[in-house]
Simulated scan of single mutants.
Amino acid sequence: MRLFAVADLHLGFAANREALAEIEPRPDDWLILAGDVGETFNHMRLAFEALLPKFRQLVWVPGNHELWAVAERDAEPGVPVLRGAERYLAFVDLCREYGVLTPEDDYPLIVVEGREARLVPMFLLYDYSFRPPEVAKADALAWASEGGVRCADEQFLAPAPFSSRSAWCEARCEETLARLEALGDETVPRILVNHWPLREALAKPPRIPRFSLWCGTKRTEDWHRRFNASVVVSGHLHMPSSRLIDGVRFEEVSFGYPKQWRGRRAPDAALRQISV
């Protein structure tokens, strides 16, 4: 089978919802959805119902937009708006209803174009450590604001039951680290998947470089080497790219907002083939 990946479908936009119909069927292949499918459970259902008939298996990792608790978007009569870890786990439950793999499942051993690989979907968040060394963490938001940058996560992404998004990030990193170390010294290459970039150098949007605060954690800087990765897949930046670092390919696979893809590429072309 072949492995494909796409991130940042942002199905809150009508044009992006319509674009799903243009994705060609690949019934023998797997598709990674690397976060920011949308903001609501209905967005996720829409993605699954459009894409599951076209692929053998879907794999999902969360982005920040799935974690947004926006009452007017989520409102269903008699259903409370979920926040924080409770919201994430509710999305995991939804994935399991559809047979979609998540970071909470065992990391599958797969065969991609005849080569074995361990697929590792992760949920790691960010901790504001992607900032200059002279900027203290307590001053990080002010530093970003001075550059005209503020992320909506500060309003919509609740970390409950954790004290902060940084604390939630630390817990997710520790849990994932333990699982990766438990794999031992197997020689099978790994495909690491996370919505946010694993390295700071990849998290600097040229127009808004101070947005890096919300783009990952320095804790993962060496994970591509430490855990025998052949490929690292991410999204979040809306800057599709393919780079080789330390012999490892880093694939940013964002689709993006309508203004970012319309007239530039067909929706089906946004799917990146991932080779081991």
Rank of each mutant, 00 (worst) to 15 (best):
F55A: 01
R249N: 04
G84I: 03
T102N: 13
A229M: 08
L141W: 11
Y128K: 04
D153L: 08
V253D: 03
A5S: 02
P103F: 08
V248G: 01
A136H: 12
G216K: 07
C95D: 02
G247E: 12
P209E: 05
M239N: 03
P80D: 09
F227Y: 13
S254F: 08
L124P: 14
P258Y: 08
D222Q: 10
G235T: 11
A203T: 07
L244T: 08
G63F: 04
L109W: 07
G184N: 14
A47R: 00
R165P: 13
A50S: 12
A201E: 15
H195L: 10
W30Y: 12
V61A: 06
W214L: 00
P209D: 05
R265H: 08
L202H: 07
P132S: 01
N64R: 01
P62M: 11
L9C: 04
P132Y: 04
P121H: 01
D246G: 07
R96Q: 12
I32G: 00
L52F: 05
F162H: 12
Q57H: 10
P159Q: 01
H195M: 07
G184H: 11
E251Q: 12
V111M: 14
W196M: 11
P206N: 00
A270Y: 01
G35Q: 12
G78A: 13
T176H: 11
F156A: 01
N42L: 10
E104C: 08
M239A: 05
G256R: 03
C173I: 11
L244V: 14
L52W: 00
W60N: 03
V231H: 00
N228D: 10
L183Q: 13
R83G: 06
R73S: 08
P133C: 06
A158H: 13
H224Y: 07
G256E: 14
A117H: 06
V193D: 00
K218P: 13
F255L: 02
V100S: 03
A158R: 14
L33G: 02
V92N: 09
A182C: 13
E72H: 14
P240H: 04
A270G: 04
E86F: 03
I208P: 02
A138Y: 02
N194H: 07
K137C: 13
V59F: 00
F91Q: 05
P209Q: 04
R190K: 10
A19V: 05
Y128E: 14
D139R: 12
H10I: 09
E104R: 05
K137N: 15
P25F: 07
P197L: 06
I110T: 01
P209S: 04
R249K: 13
P108H: 03
E221M: 06
R56H: 10
V111T: 11
L101D: 00
